[in-house]
């Protein structure tokens, strides 16, 4: 695998993850538990969409085949998407949405803190800009996790159920393949093994404060690094891509 191929795939992995999470959270628009929180979550989605857009633009430049960021987002199929499995999971209730956001924010926080040091100047600049947004997202989702976990019996049960459901998707967030090894050698990619320990200790600390228990099951679902997804991604793409596919030259 050449450096260029690896960098292109690396960008897709990051951009797809932000894009699909933004799309999922966006489903709450107008349906949030109350006005202020509805705005907060859609705000976060817009940040994620902005991050995805910047990375897709860079991916397009790296690939050099004239595919635009929109073509990358709207004209690829399910098996060509490399977003993590956790972001494509159904929203469920607000506890599940918030817990998913929390697990992803914790990852993004440590990941982008390292990506700032990348030798790739574009990725480093995007990371620096994104990190400020992510720091806020993480603060927002952690305070909700604590509030719901340590709240009423019902809120506690709901977010504990969410944790039981989503925990098995956290393992592959740290999985590395040839893409990573090629780019780590160049000083471009982040060593995910190094951030896994930080992620685990921070997540455990907050879950403990929220009186939540990490499920003891060792099974971890994987597959996104090879473009293998759960059944949910197809439906998200169908909804997200239908308009640009039906009217490829449509302009805002």
């Amino acid at each position: 695998m050449t450096k260029q191929e690896a960098l292109f795939k690396y960008c897709l992995r990051l951009a797809d993850t932000s894009l699909i999470l933004a799309q999922r959270n966006g489903e709450w628009c107008g349906h949030g538990p109350f006005l202020e929180e509805d705005l907060a979550l859609t705000n976060i989605s817009l940040d994620l969409l902005g991050q995805a857009n910047s990375i897709f633009q860079y991916a397009s430049q790296v690939e050099g085949k004239g595919r635009t960021e929109d073509q990358l987002a709207f004209h690829r199929n399910e098996r060509e998407f490399y977003n993590t499995l956790i972001v494509e999971q159904l929203n469920g209730d607000y506890a599940k949405t918030i817990l998913r956001q929390f697990l992803c924010d914790a990852f993004d926080f440590y990941f982008y803190s390292e990506l700032v040091k990348s030798k790739d100047e574009t990725l480093s600049a995007i990371a620096a800009k994104s990190l400020k947004e992510i720091t806020y997202h993480f603060r927002h989702s952690s305070s909700w996790v604590e509030r719901l976990g340590d709240g009423t019996d019902e809120s506690h049960n709901r977010i504990q159920n969410a944790l039981n459901e989503l925990w098995r998707f956290t393992g592959e967030m740290f999985e590395m393949n040839e893409v990573d090894s090629v780019l780590i050698k160049e000083g471009i990619a982040v060593d995910l093994a190094a951030i896994q320990t930080k992620w685990e200790s921070k997540v455990k600390e907050i879950l403990e404060r929220a009186t939540l228990k990490i499920p003891s099951t060792a099974f971890m679902q994987r597959g996104s690094r090879e473009g293998k997804h759960t059944e949910h991604l197809g439906y998200i793409l169908a909804e997200m891509q239908s308009l640009p596919r039906a009217l490829p030259d449509a302009k805002w």
């Binding site: 202020e36 705005l39 806020y136 305070s143």
Partner: peptide, 20 residues
């Protein structure tokens, strides 16, 4: 003004509603 259940949520909501 805004709605919130506690201080931290009030501060975060204020940030999202009034300083975007």
């Amino acid at each position: 003004n805004l709605h919130a259940f506690d201080k931290e949520m009030a501060l975060q909501n204020a940030r999202d509603l009034y300083t975007r």
